[in-house]
Design a protein around this nucleic acid. Structure first.
Length: 758
DNA sequence: ATTTGTACTTAGTAGAACCGGT
DNA sequence: ACCGGTTCTACTAAGTACAAAT
């Protein structure tokens, strides 16, 4: 399994951001036109290949297939088959019957919540009274009381159901940022203590996301403030006063003047087109060429402004901070089912120029200002509805408890819907996250069967099945994304597994001493380059040759497959299985294995953390989570090296001192000199430790140059693995998770014991 | 069967916040 | 207090998935 995950570091080493790679840009740009007919191509291919499936024997292609099959029919493949049969049997037996392990209720279809709970959730009376004072102190009785997650003084939430080990000594959670808890270990347990443990409660019935929801609506972007009159705009060398509408859009461009975006043709073209729409007819007739526009005064003005902001007095900064805090308190929370929950993004996205990633055809377009009239509010019927700003109206107020969002609007660039939703620490996100990992753990139980199945399918008579099987192999082995098809010309040209094109792979019968190497080179999500050379099974290789036969580079590799076909198939293999579950599963299982492999219980804490980071890194490489090397990377490495050198000096000095102290003690043989020796010894040890720490840090940083650990940590790694590891090796959880992360993973920190296994 | 619409997760980055050293 | 950097957070784009409409 993860033995499969032999990742070539070349994936990272030679991978570069698309943006930086002109070679790439050109390569893909050239395709643009041809690619336009992609849909048609697909049709063509389809008829071509669908026939071939049936006129078996006459088809040359098929003869090859047969040949191949014969060749492969040797002992090993038979064994393979038998093994497969066995597996299948064994799997079926456990698959068919109800799971014994009740995985926190996430096992298969959601289970109904029991009536008692339903009842109280349903009672609007209670909810109505939420806002009013808590006259009852019987908070054992289902809450009228709103549990505020951040209210540390609040009485502890009583458990409703399971888990009786409750009541632990109440301790202030201490999560000041830098805090270096050296004892750690048990901290993990204490942390979420006074907070609501939603994970110990029943979940809502199927599809129902909440019973009560109240919030204050979104915070709108501040209105446009016209430029002071001394900041001028010049067109063709002549000063020109812009109308407020045109000026605002101009400032968006001016603010980005230093960004490379503004040098890109598409960006400029799109911007100019949209800018002109905001101009008065007079302006429109005058301003006809972006190259003749001079925004530099505006640009300077904004730079000065930001300098001024930095230079503000402490008091002023504090004032701003307080104001932000006030807004946060007022708009940053909602009440969902008796609990005050943090909202993730309560501010409406301000207008500006669209910054698409990679070669985005819409970059530079104007993202228009969102007004109350664009906003749909979602809340409980019986809640206090948020009110629109004076003199305005919401587009709609609805009461849909089958969805989790509080506010939505339609964005004008792609016409997609944007949402305001809750923070990852919220129950509604946490439950889903937990469930995601439970699904992945269920996959763990049947992944061998599924693997056997797709390997078998490589031999299928049907092209669509072979394609499906090879695609699934990639998804499993390489943790590729599913690869939904995208609308041509609406987005950057990126692909995932199902949307790979012939041009994205090259096949090497033999390369670097390995057989059957597939070289992948494509742009994935966010136009991050995926580059990898992978030796594959011969059968996969032959299949790929077959899929690529008679196709143009811009044709789909898997012309008989798309994500919905694939997912439909996966659904049949396991309830809840989709392509992305493989990513989650492989990421988490890799972390667990790597931790087992790399952690050395003899090591000190920093060394163990290095091991952890390395395990994390293995996952990040698997998932191709890259980052631009920090601009300051070289320098910071150098600094660190300087520090290390200095520390080495210091160590040498300390050692020398120790020696002389020893010599001294040998002669004098008195208590005092003995003590000195001890002190010096201690000093040496301390310095050695510091040096070690620095060296570990250097290694860690170097290895992390262009790898981003955050994404996998946040989205792919079952937090219980990390929590268990921390508990097992006495590592304080805050060494692994910062405050936000601890909030998001509170459920895992609370429930995972040191023996947790993914 | 395909397309469209919706909801929700996953992603990298810019800039704010913070920190340790001077 | 400031400097030079690192870490954290907010932001929002770009994916996946699935259901409804065509």
């Amino acid at each position: 399994m993860s033995g499969d995950h032999s990742h070539n570091n070349s994936q990272i080493d030679s991978g570069s951001r698309h943006n930086d790679s002109h070679k790439h840009k050109d390569k893909y740009k050239d395709k643009e036109h041809k690619h336009k007919d992609h849909k048609k191509d697909k049709e063509r291919e389809k008829s071509k290949y669908s026939n071939s499936e049936h006129r078996d024997s006459s088809d040359k292609k098929h003869r090859d297939k047969d040949k191949e099959r014969l060749k492969l029919k040797d002992g090993s493949s038979d064994k393979q088959k038998d093994k497969h049969k066995e597996k299948k049997k064994e799997e079926r037996s456990f698959d068919g019957k109800p799971k014994k392990e009740k995985e926190n209720g996430f096992e298969s279809p959601f289970i109904k919540s029991e009536p008692e709970n339903d009842d109280f959730y349903n009672s609007p009376k209670h909810e109505k009274s939420l806002k009013r004072e808590r006259d009852d102190d019987d908070d054992e009785f289902k809450p009228k009381k709103i549990k505020t997650e951040d209210d540390r003084n609040e009485k502890k939430v009583k458990k409703r159901k399971q888990g009786e080990e409750d009541v632990k000594p109440k301790k202030k959670t201490k999560d000041k940022k830098g805090e270096v808890a050296t004892d750690g270990k048990k901290k993990a347990k204490k942390e979420p203590e006074e907070k609501w443990k939603w994970w110990e409660e029943e979940r809502h019935a199927d599809g129902v996301k909440w019973k009560f929801l109240e919030h204050k609506g979104p915070v709108f972007a501040p209105p446009y403030e016209p430029l002071p009159s001394n900041v001028k705009f010049f067109y063709d060398g002549k000063q020109m006063k812009l109308s407020s509408g045109a000026e605002e859009v101009a400032t968006f461009f001016a603010k980005m003047l230093d960004h490379e975006y503004t040098t890109k043709d598409i960006f400029r073209k799109n911007f100019f087109k949209d800018w002109r729409k905001e101009m008065t007819s007079e302006e429109k007739s005058k301003i006809t060429d972006l190259n003749k526009c001079n925004f530099s005064e505006m640009s300077e003005y904004f730079k000065a402004q930001s300098e001024a902001r930095k230079a503000m007095t402490k008091e002023d900064k504090l004032k701003i901070k307080e104001e932000n805090e006030r807004i946060l308190q007022e708009y940053g929370f909602c009440i969902m089912d008796n609990h005050k929950e943090r909202i993730a993004n309560f501010r409406i996205e301000p207008p500006g120029l669209f910054r698409g990633r990679g070669d985005h055809p819409k970059m530079g377009m104007l993202k228009r200002r969102i007004r109350p009239e664009d906003i749909i509010i979602n809340c409980s019927k019986d809640s206090k509805h948020p009110k629109p700003p004076p003199g305005t109206k919401w587009k709609e107020v609805r009461h849909d408890n089958k969805v989790t969002w509080l506010v939505s609007w339609t964005e004008n660039i792609q016409g997609s819907i944007k949402y305001i939703m809750l923070n990852p620490s919220s129950r509604i996100k946490g439950e889903k996250d937990w469930q995601k990992y439970e699904t992945a753990r269920r996959l763990k139980k049947c992944v061998e069967r599924i693997r056997a199945q797709y390997r078998e399918d490589w031999k299928s008579k049907e092209m669509r099945i072979r394609q499906r099987a090879v695609a699934l192999y990639f998804i499993d082995k390489l943790a590729l994304r599913a690869g939904n098809e995208k609308e041509e010309g609406e987005t950057a040209d990126t692909v995932g597994c199902c949307s790979l094109r012939v041009e994205h792979l090259s096949l090497h019968q033999e390369m670097d001493g390995q057989e059957y190497v597939v070289e992948f080179d494509f742009l994935g999500k966010d136009s991050i380059r995926y580059y990898n050379k992978v030796p594959v099974e011969k059968r996969v290789f032959k299949n790929l040759q077959l899929f690529m036969e008679d196709k143009e580079p811009e044709d789909d590799l898997f012309d008989r497959l798309n994500t919905s076909i694939l997912n439909k198939h996966l659904q049949e293999l396991m309830d809840g299985l989709t392509a992305k579950v493989f990513r989650t599963y492989n990421a988490s299982i890799t972390l667990q294995q790597q931790l087992n492999e790399l952690t050395n219980s003899e090591d000190n804490v920093p060394a163990k953390i290095l091991s952890y980071n390395r395990a994390n890194r293995a996952v990040a490489i698997l998932c191709n989570h890259q980052r631009a090397p920090p601009k300051t990377f070289e320098k910071s490495m150098q600094n660190l090296q300087t520090k290390i050198d200095a520390k080495k000096e210091q160590l040498a000095d300390a050692k020398r001192e120790m020696k002389s102290a020893k010599a001294d003690a040998k002669i004098r043989r008195d208590e005092k000199s003995k003590k000195t020796v001890e002190t010096k010894k201690k000093a040496v040890q301390r310095i050695e430790e510091q040096l070690m720490k620095l060296e570990v840090q250097a290694t860690d940083r170097e290895e992390n140059k262009q790898i981003a650990l955050g994404t996998s940590k946040l989205n792919y790694l079952d937090p219980r693995i990390s929590v268990a590891w921390c508990k097992k090796f006495g590592i304080p959880i805050e060494k692994i998770y910062n405050k936000t992360q601890r909030e998001k993973f509170a459920w895992a920190i609370d429930m995972a014991e040191k023996d947790f296994e993914f």
